[in-house]
Structures are given as structure tokens and as C-alpha cells.
Write a protein that binds this DNA or RNA. Structure first.
Lengths: 166, 166
DNA sequence: ATGAAGTTTCAAAAATTTTTGAACCAACAA
DNA sequence: TTGTTGGTTCAAAAATTTTTGAAACTTCAT
């Protein structure tokens, strides 16, 4: 397989994967492009390579920086900004977990807390509260497990976890 | 808070959570409705409760059954079908992981395998292959970790994992 | 100041995903 | 066989998400 073809295939697949992971297609494609880019790229380079508009490029680059998946790199004597990808996959996954936990899991926990205050003592209400209680228990566990996961380091993940788990 | 209001809030939030988890809003809402439903519901009941069309209800119920998140329940002497939710959260998460692993992670692994066959020995190609190799290593690890996770049981998750992890 | 190079914003347009509803199919009772 | 109830399908419509591109803004050099 030819290099250009390979690179392109990687960018497309990474885009598809990302879009089912809460990262939109273009955002993931930019990340992919930067991952396999030997040097930092400018916004212009990215627009060119992916054939996207300036606005789109700008917004998605900002989002990637927000998520900690891309860094700004300033070159001496250059006015424009260059960008590089976070290349450590463990950090990439960790940052995504952190963002999504905050945006999705935590609001759910808040809601579960709220709705367990049902001021009604019918058997039906009892049953409802019981179901919610179990979901809450599970979610809290998941939440703190993810916290630990995020705090642990790459080395731990690739090394110990696999053995521990079986 | 009133019971009906609580239930409704739960359905809405579960729908929102689901839609950022590869399960569409309605699909997650149906699951939520069934989770907090004391008895099995018919398609008609679900359409009524969520104010959705017959086609929508049918398709999403089928998808939920496919994912192993909802079961069909046949009542003696009743021609129509009733549905109940899988209520064990660990099983729910496990089934979602299984589905998404198959639909998203595994195709990516295949692509990574393919594209590491670059028949080019320029330094640039070398570098590219190296980056892909690292991603592949990580993805394979993630894949088998998820496999173990899926095989392990609920009890293990809620009990041991937390202590192990720190 | 003025202009050039680069960045940001955001309303409108395009693309994508989800939902609808009517036609069709299947099982059964009369 | 026909009518009724319930399930399935899918093209078209609606809703949602993403992208565009032009205007506004910023920074810096002259």
C-alpha cells in the first residue's frame, strides 16, 4: 500500500471512530492528521489537507485544545500558530474520559440524586425509588472507578491491569 | 418531588445520556421507561407514554432487543408482545461495550493492520508506520482489556476492582 | 493611522440522523 | 374467505448537527 493512501485511510477511520465517541468527525480527522504529521501544522495546512473551511478548522482546533488532545506550538519569528497532537494514547483516552465524565456522567448523577426525593409513599413510588437507588449506586461506582483510572498512569494501564484482571 | 415528575425527569436524562453513548435518544428513553415500569409494557403502551410513532417504537424496541437491553415477554392468551428491560446495570454496560467494541473498535483494528503494510522505505514512511504501530499496540491492549471486563462478573466489578485499582 | 496576515465568530446552508405514517405482512377468529 | 389486531418496513419529512464563508476582530509592521 502506498504511503499517501495509508495516511488517508487512517484519517478517515480515525474520523469514523471519533464520531462514535463524542468527538465529531472533523475534530477526529484533524487529530489524526496531526498524529501522523512529522511536524506541526498551521491552520492553513489543515484546511488544505482535509479540504475544510477556515471556520470549521478553527472551531475544531480550539475544541481539540480544550480537550487536551492538541497543543499550540509557537515558532520563533512566525506570527501564525502551529499545532501538534498529543501522541500518547493513554493520555488521549484519559482526557476524553475526563471530559465526558464531566459532561455526561456527572449531570446524570445530579439528576439521580434529585429524583430520589419522591415525597410519596405509595408502593409504586417505593419501587421506583428502589430502582433509582440501584442505578445511583452503580453510577457512583463507575464514576469513582473512572476517577481512579484517570489518575493512574500509562504504565500501570499497559502493565498491571492486564494481569490483575485475569 | 412528585412521582410522575420524577419518572419523567429520569426518562429525559437517561435519553440524553444514551444519546451521547451511541444509543439514540428514543432508544434510551424506551429503556428508561421500561426500567422504571413495574410491569411489562406493550408497544402501544410505549408509544403512548413517550408520544412516539408506531414505526419509531418498533424499530427502537428491536434495536434494544438486539443489544440485549430489553427482552420480549409473551403473556399467555395475549397475542401482542410485551417488553421488559434488563435491569442489572452491569449487564447493561457489558452489553453496550460488547456491541460497540464489535462495531467500532474492531473495524479500527483491522484498518490499523492494513495500513501498517506501507511498501515504501522513505524515512517519512518509517515514521508513519511507527506511529501506527504504537496506536495498534494500545488498541489491542484496550480491546483485550474490554474482553476481560466483559467476561468478568458484576460482583467482581462492584467488589474487587475498586480495591485493586487503589 | 493604515494595511497585511492571521484568528474568531456566527447566521445561514448543507449534511446527517431520527421520526413519521401509511402501506404491507402475519396470525388468528369468525 | 374475510376482517381484525398487531408487527414490520421504508420513503419522505422533520429535527439535529456540522460546515461554510464572510464580516469582525487582533496583532504587528510600516
Amino acid at each position: 500500500m502506498k504511503l499517501e493512501e495509508s495516511k488517508d485511510k487512517f484519517i478517515q477511520s480515525w474520523g469514523a471512530l471519533g464520531s462514535s465517541w463524542g468527538i465529531n468527525r472533523t475534530m477526529a480527522q484533524i487529530h489524526a492528521l496531526l498524529l501522523i504529521s512529522p511536524e506541526a501544522l498551521s491552520a492553513e495546512d489543515i484546511m488544505e489537507a482535509l479540504q475544510i473551511s477556515r471556520g470549521n478548522a478553527n472551531m475544531n482546533i480550539r475544541a481539540l485544545i480544550d480537550w487536551g488532545l492538541v497543543y499550540k506550538e509557537l515558532k520563533a519569528g512566525e506570527r501564525r500558530e502551529f499545532f501538534v497532537a498529543e501522541k500518547d494514547m493513554w493520555t488521549v483516552v484519559r482526557n476524553i474520559i475526563t471530559q465526558r465524565k464531566k459532561k455526561e456522567l456527572e449531570p446524570m448523577l445530579k439528576v439521580l440524586e434529585e429524583i430520589s426525593n419522591v415525597d410519596d409513599n405509595s408502593p409504586e413510588a417505593e419501587e421506583f425509588v428502589q430502582v433509582i437507588r440501584e442505578i445511583k449506586l452503580f453510577s457512583n461506582k463507575a464514576n469513582s472507578t473512572l476517577d481512579s483510572l484517570v489518575k493512574s498512569d500509562s504504565n500501570w494501564f499497559v502493565g498491571t491491569f492486564m494481569k490483575m484482571i485475569k
